[in-house]
Simulated scan of single mutants.
Amino acid sequence: MWQEPKDIWNLVAKEDIQYFRNRDDKEICRHLDACGGISAQKAEDGMVVFRLPKMEAGLVVICGCCGKTVGDSFFKSNPDIEIYYNTVKLDPDTFEIWPNPKCVKLLSRFPTSGRESETPTGHAYLAIKVINDMDQVIRVSHVITV
């Protein structure tokens, strides 16, 4: 796990800072978005598994940090990781850089057949596994679902 520490007022509008700065309840204005995520570099780092929330469409996107174009090198064309959806390995050739170059759309909709389509609890699982040691650290900053 990693996180870039941020000031309590990071990304808070100036007029809100003036209003909340000296109040006892100033924490309610705290912006929750900060750079952070999960990182790995070595095969011994293993696998991270995300229990995804119940989805309506089946859209699954992962994003990386830090760099404006890391989606391709981290996820789409990285031979040193494997990505699984409900225990089924996904084919990186089907991944799409979306909605920006930091992110990769893994699925556009729910799979309609096979083990990957089975969700008895309504939840799906996304796993990212490091299979070979890498020169660069891979950082997952977001998992987006719809």
Rank of each mutant, 00 (worst) to 15 (best):
Ile17Leu: 03
Ile17Asn: 06
Ile17Val: 12
Gln18Glu: 15
Tyr19Phe: 13
Tyr19Lys: 14
Phe20Gln: 07
Phe20Ala: 10
Phe20Arg: 03
Arg21Asp: 14
Arg21Trp: 09
Asn22Glu: 07
Asn22Phe: 14
Asn22Ala: 02
Arg23Glu: 07
Arg23Asn: 02
Arg23Val: 07
Arg23Gln: 09
Lys26Leu: 09
Lys26Ser: 14
Lys26Gly: 07
Lys26Asp: 13
Ile28Pro: 01
Cys29Ser: 14
Cys29Tyr: 09
Cys29Met: 14
Arg30Thr: 06
Arg30Leu: 04
His31Leu: 09
Leu32Gln: 12
Asp33Asn: 13
Asp33Lys: 10
Ala34Thr: 12
Cys35Trp: 07
Gly36Ile: 01
Gly36Tyr: 03
Gly37Asp: 00
Ile38Arg: 03
Ser39Pro: 00
Ser39Lys: 10
Ala40Lys: 01
Ala40Gly: 08
Gln41Thr: 07
Gln41Asn: 13
Gln41Ala: 11
Gln41Gly: 11
Lys42Arg: 08
Ala43Val: 06
Glu44Trp: 03
Glu44Tyr: 04
Glu44Val: 10
Asp45Cys: 02
Asp45Ser: 00
Asp45Asn: 05
Asp45Lys: 00
Gly46Asn: 01
Gly46Gln: 04
Gly46Arg: 01
Gly46Leu: 04
Met47Lys: 11
Met47Trp: 05
Met47Gln: 11
Met47Pro: 00
Val48Phe: 06
Val49Ser: 15
Phe50Val: 11
Phe50Tyr: 11
Phe50Trp: 11
Arg51Gln: 14
Arg51Ile: 08
Leu52Glu: 02
Leu52Tyr: 03
Leu52Trp: 02
Leu52Gln: 13
Leu52Met: 08
Lys54Glu: 14
Lys54Met: 11
Lys54Arg: 14
Lys54Ile: 05
Met55Tyr: 03
Ala57Glu: 13
Leu59Asp: 08
Leu59Tyr: 08
Val60Pro: 02
Val60Ile: 05
Val60Asn: 01
Val61Ala: 08
Val61Gly: 05
